[in-house]
Each structure stands twice: as C-alpha cells, then as structure tokens.
Design a binder for these strands. Structure first.
Length: 254
DNA sequence: ATGGCTTTATGCTAAAGA
C-alpha cells in the first residue's frame, strides 16, 4: 500500500500538478492539505480512479483524502472545541487503517491568539490520538504539521528560532505526540539533515535548498511494523507555478 | 527583512501563509 501527503497550496491552482503526479506515482491514497476554497474537483479525481472525502471552507485551509481503495469517512472535525470551524482535520478508514489527515495551524505571530490556537490544537490532537491508541485502532497521521521537529530539519535554525514552527513549546508538543508511541516514518530511514518538504517562494529558497521539514507521517505501532519505505519526492517543487510544499510518500507491507 | 512571493476574495487592497 502506497500512501502520500501533499500540501498543494490551492487545489484549484494546482489541479494539473496533482493529476500528473497521481498518474506518474499511482499511490493508493493521497492526503491533500490547503484546498483554499469550497470547490473541490471530486468528479475529476473520480475519473482518475480516486474517490474523495474532504472537509472544505471558503478561501482558507481545507483537507481531502483521495483513495483508489474503498474508503469510509469517520470524523471531519478535531474533537475538543465545538466552536472551532476551521477545516483542518479528516479521519477516514482504508484497508483497516485509520488515516488522519491534518493541516496543523501555522501559529504566527507568536505573541497573539494564533499561537495559542496552535498549541491548544496540538493538545486536542494528542488527546484524540491517545484515545485511538487506547481503543487499539491502528492509525497513520499525515499532513502539514507546521512543526520543524529538530535542528537538522531546518536549513538555518537561528533564522527560525523565534518562529511558531520552531519554538520550543511547539517542538515539545510534537515530541509529546511521539511519546504516545508514534514513529516519525521519515526518520526510520534517513538520519541526515538537510531533507526538506517546504521551501519558501521568496529569495530563491528552492534553488539554494533553504528549506524546512514540516510535512510528516506519524505511525502507530502496528502500522510502523508494516513500514517499508518513506521518501520525500522533491520533483514537484521544481515545476512551474509549484506549491511551496512537496509530497512525502510511504509504503506499507500488505 | 517589517514576507522582497503566491493565492483567495460579493476583489483592484487586504489577509494569510511559514
């Protein structure tokens, strides 16, 4: 089973890139973040053999999970705050595994409500994942975490020192997710630094490889035991009118 | 660098992203 995650920075603007990537890579599942609008090209993806489950809102956020295997919808909101209207969370079941597609809040600037929202969102995520662990549900959490876990995941740790993606409060809460018994799939196979999933549009960040690793797969133990590979596919970042993020792909033993 | 790019929006400037 081949599963991917990709923040596409608008599905409308990036549909052709996503279509060509699906045709070339043929994943069984693709989790997309930052739809950035209410219109979702459900029929177009169905024509490619993928059925979609999605949570969308106007202009911002939005997540979709595409699958060519049978898919059942579970949750489209992260529990813990009924007043939270942001479309950042989607749980579905495919092949007996719960797939949790997240677009974790950015959190900048750190001196206001947005950082507090990010941190409380991470607490809510931890509570949800702890429940699923207690229930014995095998799961994979994937998406744009907006978290740089460690210095080796960042081209210039000093430049990011005060940023919401790298603040110690953020990294501590990410580590608390790992402490539930989850595995950062990319780190199973690659301990080197300089492996990134996001490069800023500005200042020639992509050609200079000034990036950060913020798109992740966190796997519960029974799913980790089936993990065969995890790789960042940087190719789409080099396309014209690219998303600023690139896909991460895992393979699971059947 | 106080976002120097990119995208969306009852749009032509503002907001958000990371």
């Amino acid at each position: 089973m081949k599963v991917a995650t990709w923040n596409v920075n608008s599905i409308r603007a990036r549909f052709d890139h996503v279509k060509s990537w699906l045709e070339k890579n043929a994943p069984d599942v693709l989790m997309i973040q930052e739809l950035k609008g209410l219109d979702f090209p459900e029929m177009e993806f169905a024509a490619l053999g993928y059925k979609s489950v999605f949570a969308a809102q106007k202009a911002y956020n939005g997540v979709a999970t595409l699958s060519r295997l049978p898919q059942e919808a579970n949750e489209n909101k992260l529990p813990g705050d009924e007043s939270d209207e942001q479309a950042r969370y989607l749980e579905t079941t495919i092949g007996g595994i719960r797939f949790i597609n997240i677009y974790l809040p950015n959190g900048n600037p750190v001196d206001g409500d947005k950082f507090a929202y990010k941190l409380s969102w991470m607490d809510r995520l931890k509570a949800r994942l702890a429940d699923l662990r207690a229930e014995g549900v095998p799961f994979a959490v994937a998406g744009d975490f907006n978290v740089i876990p460690e210095e080796r995941d960042c081209h210039d740790p000093q430049a990011w020192a005060g940023d919401a993606l790298f603040r110690i409060e953020t990294r501590r809460k990410f580590r608390a997710l790992l402490h539930l018994g989850l595995t950062d799939a990319f780190r199973v196979f690659d301990g080197a630094g300089g492996r990134y999933t996001y490069w800023d549009y500005q200042g020639g960040a992509w050609p200079a490889n000034r990036g950060i690793r913020i798109d992740h797969f966190l796997l519960s133990p029974p799913v980790t035991d089936r993990l065969l590979s995890c790789a960042i596919d940087a190719e789409p970042r080099g396309m014209d009118k690219a998303s600023d993020h690139t896909p991460v792909v895992i393979e699971l033993r059947d």
